[in-house]
Design a binder for these strands. Structure first.
Lengths: 123, 123, 123, 123
DNA sequence: GTGGTCTAGACCACA
DNA sequence: GTGGTCTAGACCACA
């Protein structure tokens, strides 16, 4: 479910965070279902528990999971998260387009790209 | 010409690299004109010369500047760079759109964003 | 009667303790009436008996309940408890006001808050 | 400047965070002045650098400080923080008053407390 | 068994 | 020198 890419320049904990964000946002992990335990994940990935802990701490702080004392961490099924993520995506898109424009990418080019991603719908 | 934002989370050398990339791509720096010397820049920005050195090394490696022994670094006026940068932008845009789509951003939303960036032209 | 909020960051035993404190102080549980047995509560709440045990131990230590060997735990109808709780509340309030003052909350602001809580009586 | 209370049940990193929050909010630490280095603090307090790091990470996440790569951490002189803290204080005060009321503390009692904290002004 | 805190210590990027 | 990441491992609270 989780794969670590050691070639990736990003820290391990960040890869884990990103992976779970996607899984949770896509609904691949049911709301209120239990996350793999820190130790279990650490063992499976041959990683130090502290690193998993850090990833979980970030996920908690971002609202993706919530801890229950003595039981473990659980998936937060809050729809707000999806909205927040969408907004972040939007902002990134706008930056991307703005930068592209500076370097001579035309609106037409962008449209082509859009069609490629969304299929040949009548955009 | 170069301003460093210490609140920016990126390392200083990266800010310098990005700034010069833009200046060169936009033609603000003439082809074959001399870059400010490492020491001069370091002094002006009150920055460690190692940092400038690293920025220049990256710019050279990317093909934006070329060194002349005993003289300094000079701007590379190669049009290929512009093309390469454009392609990089494109790829980033495609990634951005793909991710956005995964999280429920519609093609229509993207179009709106496109219009916002490129103005109300008949897109 | 007792509801556990798993989203609550506090440990379960603490939630149970606080809940019983309130019930007893408000007189919702009659003096010398029997508390639910540890096992019964554990079963009802689907909770580890150790957790209930710990909650009861704290309630006993605080003087809210008293154990009778072989019979169970019983509510202590001592009025002293109410007074003690009140004093604890007072102290917390004073700390709260002191801290607020340090950060620029005015006496007038506090008065407004007071009116909001106690209603529009002529304070 | 920073003192750790080992009798305190709260974790060390939390004590450090709280102490710096106050120092910064009160203006005892000038905006954009450098925080003590992680290692220096660790040495002074005979504490593991990781613990200081955790405290600083929280302070950064809360907006109290900002990191500059290779240089250190610096105080963020943002007035928004003060406002946010004030609001948090208010909420806590309201909770405190509400709880107190439940246990029989009168508005008059609260007023007395208020006068004690704010002095004998004509409240 | 579950997570949280902390230590000791290594190694890396950045300036 | 500065912070950031990670490991190995201990110890504690909670259930």
């Amino acid at each position: 479910m989780i794969v670590i890419d050691y070639q990736d320049r990003r820290p391990i904990y960040e890869q884990i965070v990103e992976r779970f964000e996607k899984l949770i946002l896509k609904g691949a992990l049911e709301a209120d279902s239990q996350m793999p335990s820190v130790r279990q994940m650490a063992a499976e990935l041959s990683i130090n528990p502290n690193t998993i802990q850090k990833a979980y701490a970030i996920l908690e702080q971002e609202g993706y999971i919530y801890p229950v004392k003595g039981k473990g961490n659980f998936v937060n099924g809050n729809l707000v998260l999806r909205q927040r993520k969408k907004e972040a995506c939007f902002q990134k898109l706008e930056e991307c387009l703005t930068e592209g424009r500076e370097f001579g990418i035309t609106a037409e080019d962008c449209l082509k790209c859009l069609r490629r991603v969304y299929g040949e719908v009548d955009i």
